[in-house]
Design a protein around this nucleic acid. Structure first.
Lengths: 193, 193
DNA sequence: ATTTATAATGAGTGTGAGCTCATTGAGTTG
DNA sequence: CAACTCAATGAGCTCACACTCATTATAAAT
């Protein structure tokens, strides 16, 4: 009996995934597999024991990332609240996952189709919560008469713009942490009547 | 006498640059040099007769691109006009240079530092014209009380967001052409008091 | 006409990536 | 304890890329 072996295998797999998240966050998705193997303290070949291709590793990794992120979004938005609260929550979640999320915004073009869809799915989830928080205020006539999708795209465009140019706006540390309140205040000022 | 040779050399160089613009616009900046040589109907080695490295070709190409684009911005904005006119002009210029500009927004991360700075310089030029058109309306109290740089970043964030997700919003043809009026109308609605 | 200078060529080189597979060695089974 | 299983290994394979350089073709100079 005993499943020491199974456990060890599982452990190695998780070491690889954790290393990949770290390496991809730091070096981008073009990082070579050797860097991941080195970070995981595992041989190069081990990666291909657990994943048939690097692409499959990437997709597996992003799927679990998206699941974590959307789960947290759901959890936090269940407590309800107005738009301003939702925006703060959105930024907080992105700060928590900023390493990989920033990479996704920057390098999405080079990702395989499946990975891009994962990223789109995340944004879709955000959109739903955004709508739930905004709808009452729109009905109440407190918001500018602009189509919902434009309100959403303006917000996401702004957030992604800051993430993309993070090196410019905040050379050290998190752009989102630094500009969180500015971004929310200005956006709220713009959309309110 | 005669400078047939000098002329031919110049011609070859221009063929390479023109081919590079076309290939980079279509395939992205990771396109191999062989694709550029093929498009220019020139041998692979010829590229390295004219440019010591592909990076130098890229930088040369982007510099002239930026020069063309900013020259056009200057020219058009000299005629003056309000913010709405300036936004329309901005979108029109981007539509004209959409191929390369879209690639710049998408792949800036992978570009060498010098190339990134060229892209930043373009945005800086836009910012100046933006300010010149907006300042009178801010003074007149017609615009929401939001810092100028946030007004600018919101606009550019929106434009870049549509360029980045062009495949999603407008699978065929130009996103900017399709959404030009929507983008301008909504943005104007947001920033006006 | 002959020599010289040089633009252009493209097979060849070096590098670094993803991926393979014979081998190893530790866990498991009878 | 012997036989077996299989996770893990890493040297080496293939491939695509940027870049080189001996060679060629042709304009320019003598």
């Amino acid at each position: 009996m005993a499943d020491t072996r199974r456990l060890q295998k599982e452990q190695t797999r998780e070491k690889i995934v954790a290393a990949a998240i770290k390496v991809y966050s730091q070096q981008g998705f073009a990082a070579p597999t050797t860097a991941i193997a080195g970070e995981a303290q595992v041989s190069h070949g081990s990666i291909f024991v657990h994943f048939p291709t690097v692409e499959s590793l990437l997709i597996c990794l992003l799927d679990s990332f998206a699941q974590d992120l959307t789960a947290e979004l759901h959890m936090l938005s269940e407590s309800g609240g107005d738009v301003e609260k939702l925006l703060a929550m959105h930024v907080d979640v992105l700060i928590k996952y900023e390493g990989l999320y920033k990479r996704l915004t920057k390098e999405a073009v080079y990702l395989p189709e499946e990975a891009k869809n994962t990223f789109i799915a995340i944004q879709s989830t955000v959109s739903i919560h955004f709508w739930q928080a905004l709808e009452p205020e729109i009905s109440a006539g407190a918001i500018k008469l602009v189509p919902f999708h434009m309100l959403f795209n303006t917000w996401l465009g702004l957030i992604h713009y800051y993430l993309l140019n993070g090196d410019l706006f905040a050379p050290r540390g998190s752009v989102l942490r630094r500009y969180k309140s500015t971004l929310i205040e200005c956006y709220m000022a713009l959309i309110k009547k």
